[in-house]
Amino acid sequence: MEFEPTIVSFLCNWCSYTGADLAGTSRMKYAHNVRVIRVMCSGRVEPTFVFKAFREGADGVLICGCHPGDCHYHEGNYKCLRRYHLIKKYLDQMGIEQDRLRLAWISASEGKQFAELADEMTETIKSLGPCKVKNVMETLT
């Protein structure tokens, strides 16, 4: 059976979640691998969530926020951007492919972009194969 990755995604309430909703109301089809968690702002997303998702078996993590300058809370998305880069560096050190984590800006009108992003991310993760964090952690000696 083909590997079907699981991607946990954190979507900000104002732009990205609405964008994802728009993909739905516009009946765009995309890969089923993305599971959405709603946060008020991408600025709420912290490393713990990302690590936890991998630890629980996610193969990829996607964070979406408003485009730079559009944040409903002014600058939350920039805070997320800063964290994102540090997390990526850390993931790399931990032997987790950086591409498993992705930050993207999705506005409320970008339903299509969200759908494309979901497909794209799924493809990327498929090519990376399953993330082993969970398995390894459970079999530590």
């Binding site: 104002w14 732009c15 609405t18 728009l22 408003c66 485009h67 300058g69 559009d70 409903h72 506005s107 409320a108 009108s109 970008e110």
Partner: peptide, 17 residues
């Protein structure tokens, strides 16, 4: 509208709420 000047925030993002 797509975006609004000069901040380029998307019209839907700010209007639909």
């Amino acid at each position: 509208f797509d975006k609004t000047f000069p901040t380029l925030d998307c019209a839907a993002c700010i209007l639909t709420p």
